[in-house]
Each structure stands twice: as C-alpha cells, then as structure tokens.
Amino acid sequence: MKLSDIFKKKNSGDVAKDRLKMVLVSDRSSCSPEIMDRIKNDIIEVLSKYAEIDQDGLDIKITEMETDDKGTKSVPALYANIPIRNMHHTAK
C-alpha cells in the first residue's frame, strides 16, 4: 500500500489545505477537473509532435495572475510546467 503510506506521512491539516486550494481553483475559475484533464491531454498530444515530453513530470493548473501593480485585481491564468526529454529534430 504505497499510496496510503504517502498520505500517512502528511499531516491531515496540510492535506486539507492542499485539497481546499485545488477545489477553490476549479470553483473560482468554474473549470472542472475533467476539463483540466482534457486540456492536459490535448497539450500533450500537440507538443508530442515536436518533442518527447516527460508526462509524469507535467504540471498544469489554473492559478491567478495579478493584472495591476497593486495586486488588487487578479484574473485566472493557465500555468503549465512541461519537462521536455528530447526535441524531435525531424520536426524542424
């Protein structure tokens, strides 16, 4: 039971905060986890034409971005961190 071992190590308070952050991201952006999953798969599909992607290391989420210097107004922003293993040179 590797998965449960991982959860045991983490305090339940931290688990709560992480789950809360995740659920608020989709609440605030009105974007469901299913749609996020489809966006992720589509990005993988497109980028795979040009590069070999580390799919396990791929991190994609909707966060918030400040639109002014004061940091009072923010808009949702798509953040994607996509590790590339190899560029397909044939794609040039």
């Binding site: 305090n11 339940s12 308070g13 931290d14 709560a16 905060k17 809360l20």
Partner: peptide
Amino acid sequence: DMVKRGDMMS
C-alpha cells in the same frame, strides 16, 4: 492543540 499537531488548518 489540533493545529499544533498538524491535524487542523491554522
């Protein structure tokens, strides 16, 4: 007490 032991959000 729960916050202290990490079982409640602060």
